[in-house]
Amino acid sequence: MRVSGEIVYAVSIPPNRESDPRPMSSPNPAADTFTVAGRAYRSRLLLGTGKYKDLDETRRAVEASGAQIVTVAVRRTNIGQTPNEPSILEVLPPERYTILPNTAGCYDAKTAVRTCRLARELLDGHKLVKLEVLGDEKTLFPDVVATLEAAEELIADGFDVMVYTNDDPIMAKRLEEIGCVAVMPLAAPIGSGLGIRNRLNILTIVENAKVPILVDAGVGTASDAAVAMELGCDGVLMNTAIAAARDPVLMASAMRKAIEAGREAFLAGRMPAKRFASASSPLEGMFF
């Protein structure tokens, strides 16, 4: 039988990112923030608000997650139906949360730009948006060419663009260079819950970046979120992993802890992984 001499690294490649703080001797969680579009956030968990049972469950999940940034979609008003139905912005007031309107469902640059302009009007000139331009319905992978085109137009029009993209270091860098305020590579297809499919690409994207990198889409459970943070990501945006859990509010709490644990592990700097054992008790002073 052939035995490989290589260590199989799981998450053990130490990140090497100059812009990130190095290990702190006494971590002060209150001071550990990330900044996007000039505003600092304590919570590194960003929440999508789709697929919940009702608005009350949405509210309870957001509260349990500790999220400060929540995404919303922009859709047609239901005319003549349930006129007194509460709206998502009543449940998640813009005075309390940073509302991040998305362009979900857009398959071309023009529609995505229209959606962002409507969202800016809807939110009284709020110019932070989450851009996603999708390529096909089966994978919901981004159309990166159309994404780049839409991002350029939005930035020229004064928007702060947080952009959903593939786990491709070259495209991530291009999107940063044209002025996106955050780059958000997918971990796996939207809503798949497959976890981080290409850790090394996410790591490379993080190492190259001067803007916040957030994993957006594809995490399935708490350990996936912790891995993203251990790789040095600034945050994670998720929706289905919480909304489709058996108990979404409990999963929101689990995700909050996973994000915090992963972040602290990243700051602490993990030990190098080794193939063979290393005794934890002293080898000196043995009397037997």
């Binding site: 999508g48 608000t49 789709g50 697929k51 919940y52 608005l55 949405t58 995404t71 919303v72 979609a73 922009v74 859709r75 047609r76 008003t77 005319i79 709206s87 998502i88 912005l89 509302i99 309107p101 998305n102 979900a104 409507l118 969202a119 009007e121 809807l122 939110l123 939207i190 945006l237 998720m238 929706n239 289905t240 909304a243």
Partner: peptide
């Protein structure tokens, strides 16, 4: 919104009225 009082519609116009909904 500031132009709602003055914006006059014409025959055949396609109007979209949108709001925010839950989404990820």
């Amino acid at each position: 919104r500031s132009r709602f009082e003055e914006h006059r519609l014409a025959s055949g116009d396609r109007v979209e009225i949108i709001h925010a909904v839950g989404g990820g």
